[in-house]
């Protein structure tokens, strides 16, 4: 537990959001969350978007939560995460170029 929170602190909490590393870590976190949702089979729950429940069930709040979580992490990993990765790369490249120019 201590080791986990230490890794979390080192990777996420101590790393500023607006930094190349911060962007990269957030992109990986979004991708990991999506992968977990996908492996848990939550894709089926996105049927809530059409007002239906998975299986022959009535639509419950839990279906909506699961379907919405899947959709959010899916769109996060296809739209936001690549933007974060590109931004991290550009920022790092700009920093590297300016350090080189100073030297």
């Amino acid at each position: 537990m201590t080791r986990t929170s230490s890794v979390w602190r080192r990777l996420v909490r101590d790393r500023p959001l607006f930094s190349p590393g911060g962007f990269l870590v957030r992109a990986v976190l979004i991708g990991t969350a999506f992968l977990a949702c996908h492996l848990l089979g939550l894709r089926e729950y996105t049927t809530v978007m059409s007002g239906s429940a998975p299986g022959g069930d009535r639509l419950h709040a839990v279906h909506t939560v699961l379907g919405t979580a899947y959709a959010l992490f899916y769109f996060g990993s296809t739209v936001a995460a690549p933007v974060l990765v590109i931004a991290a790369g550009l920022w790092w490249a700009a920093g590297w170029a300016s350090r080189r120019a100073v030297r």
């Binding site: 590109i86 931004a87 550009l90 920022w91 700009a94």
Partner: peptide, 18 residues
Amino acid sequence: MALAVGAAVWLPLLHLFF
């Protein structure tokens, strides 16, 4: 700024994957 450029690069390309 980096985020805006990232979005400007990625979003027009996204549809190509689908």
